[in-house]
């Protein structure tokens, strides 16, 4: 069952198209990773989904309802953590958590104390004194202690330390086990790889790749690490080979899925000593899109390179 989807979602600020026909779809019980560099449209998409911004064209739906018109109804079952958490400087963290949980209109703060302890937050301090990470914890605790069906998280771990990051991941895995759906925007690729069933890659307002991690890897092909007695001649010009990187005596490169047989037969003439194959990591997938797009568009990708 589809929990959340956008159909040809377009958002323009003046003439600038921040989103250009974005299509994503999150099913029930899925963790959906939404990745892309800064300014690519991740936050804009999430804000349209939450009815904070109004779509210029296309549709955005959650639980089958229109995310602009039925915002209030939808929000009773959604928890959101914004990318930049800005809090009221003269309220304490504890007060903000209680307020945010209550304003959802839904039930339960049964996990409040446990979460505060796990995330190691001092709730009696004024928000003014919190660091970025602590402000993020406040928003995360408020989100996780609500009983909802869908979590929309915008780079929730960007200010957390590695220990807290792990705590966060444990909670996400637990929520997933309970059949909750999660839309997770991130540029920490290892995190997405660990948590997500499906991934969409967005760049300059356009979705450039979407599907399960397995599909993406399959589509992209295989990473080969090869050590040969003779140096491999002219590897860069072999059909289907990209991303060549020397690794000590060996060389690593990516092979398009349709060309594996051909490439293996080509390199075997240089007397293979060792060969390892592995699926591409998300980072390799990601970087490949940038390299390709950079060549075609000629515009710097910026961001996380």
């Amino acid at each position: 069952m589809t929990v959340l989807r956008t159909v040809d979602l377009t958002k323009k600020f003046g003439d600038f198209a921040a989103l250009d026909k974005v299509n994503i779809e999150v099913g029930e019980g899925e963790v959906y990773g939404f990745i892309g560099p800064n300014g690519s449209g991740k936050s804009t998409t999430l804000r349209v989904l939450l009815g904070i911004l109004k779509a210029t064209e296309g549709r955005a739906e959650i639980f089958g309802k229109d995310s602009w018109k039925d915002a209030v109804e939808i929000h009773k079952r959604v928890a959101y953590v914004p990318g930049e958490v800005s809090l009221w400087p003269n309220l304490t963290g504890g007060e903000v958590i209680d307020l945010l949980v209550k304003l959802r209109g839904g039930n339960s703060s049964h996990r409040r104390e446990e979460l505060i302890q796990k995330f190691d937050l001092d709730p009696s301090k004024k928000c003014r004194t919190y660091s970025k990470g602590n402000r993020q914890k406040v928003a995360l605790i408020a989100a996780l202690s609500s009983d909802v069906d869908l979590y929309i998280l915008d780079e929730p771990t960007s200010g957390l330390d590695p220990l807290m990051e792990r705590t966060f991941q444990e909670y996400i895995i637990e929520e997933k086990k309970q059949g909750k759906s999660i839309l997770l925007s991130s540029h920490i690729l290892s995190e997405v790889e660990k948590l997500c069933d499906k991934v969409a890659i967005i760049r300059e307002g356009k979705i450039i790749e979407t599907g399960s991690l397995k599909d993406l890897r399959h589509l992209t092909g295989t990473i080969l690490l090869v050590e040969t007695k003779k140096p491999i001649l002219d590897l860069a010009n072999v059909r289907g080979v990209s991303g060549i990187q020397p690794k000590g005596n060996a060389v690593s490169f990516q092979v398009d899925s349709g060309e594996v047989a051909y490439v293996i037969s080509y390199i075997s003439q240089f007397e293979i000593v060792r060969i390892e194959s592995s699926p591409p990591t998300l980072e390799q997938l990601f970087m490949r899109h940038y390299e390709v797009s950079d060549k075609t568009s000629g515009i710097g990708a910026g961001g996380e390179a």
Partner: peptide, 21 residues
């Protein structure tokens, strides 16, 4: 700066409550 309450009072827990506070 003083530290405050770690739980919100009932009067804070609404949008008007927040605005008033």
């Amino acid at each position: 700066s003083r530290s405050g309450k770690d739980k919100a009072s009932k009067t804070l827990l609404s949008s008007f409550g927040l605005v008033f506070r």
